[in-house]
Design a protein around this nucleic acid. Structure first.
Lengths: 137, 137
DNA sequence: CAAATAATTATAATTATTATAAAATTAAAA
DNA sequence: TTTTAATTTTATAATAATTATAATTATTTG
């Protein structure tokens, strides 16, 4: 964690047409440097420790802004809460049903039938089960 | 639509350890015969026409029962509403961002890297974009 | 039939997310 | 710099999907 500097993030946001306000920087920094696929509430609770005045609405506004500008991708791993990922490459997400951790898997290949004529703009491959650690128990 | 008879569905539920109450039969019949990947509310509104006394709680109870007994699969195609599918085979779901229709795609092959040691119990491949029809406009 | 069990309903509670309007901040113009 | 305009953030209320609860109804079993 902690590989991107605030200055680099600032330039990146500007390059993507987003005014780099303090909160936006902090939210994007969190997504980038802690790649835990957090939910909006996890981001809120984390930043609240450092910035007690921050509001949930800001988190949602900012995440929706990032989604629209395609800076982050949405993960619908569970039915009740959306997660966000600053890694844009096409990869799978696995959720352990025991420890609730989310793992990334690289997708080597995928072949679909019948997609001719369809314009596919978004893809999500979501998996669930038990991770190696939790199976030992 | 309408290929399974009530009698067949009844036997199928019993075989899966589910008491075949009237409402359960109707809900499973709807999922089977109209394969539109409905949300809980769509099922509720449809059955309400025929059975005005039916309650939303029954729909949710029954769908969760079917999920636990693995008679249906959950689809998290959109962040705000779950959909249900009585087809259990592994296939992809595509949602048209214009007409909101859901299409099934057959998956010919999928290769993942790094899954050794993981026990994968659930898989979902969700796509979004524009269907052939809507692209012409 | 009576007792026990299970299913269903109506309602309230919970919770993630969005909408709204006011306040605060930042940028632009004079 | 001061004023004005635009944007961002906040606090709060509103929505909406889902779950929890407790009472009622239906079904099964002895």
């Amino acid at each position: 964690m902690g590989n991107w500097t605030i200055e680099e993030i600032k330039n990146f946001l500007i390059k993507n047409g987003i005014r780099p306000s303090f909160y936006r920087l902090k939210i994007y920094q969190y997504l980038l440097n802690e790649r835990t696929h957090p939910s909006a509430d996890e981001i809120f609770l984390y930043l609240k420790k450092e910035i007690p005045t921050i509001s949930r609405a800001t988190i949602y506004n900012t995440l929706n802004l990032f989604l629209n500008k395609r800076l982050v991708q949405l993960i619908n791993l569970e039915r009740d809460e959306a997660r966000y990922d600053a890694t844009l490459s096409w990869h799978a997400h696995f959720k352990c049903l025991n420890c609730n951790k989310v793992f990334d898997f690289h997708i080597e290949s995928l072949k679909l039938k019948g997609v001719e004529g369809f314009q596919i703009l978004e893809k999500q491959l979501n998996l669930a089960g038990y991770c190696a650690q939790c199976q030992k128990k």
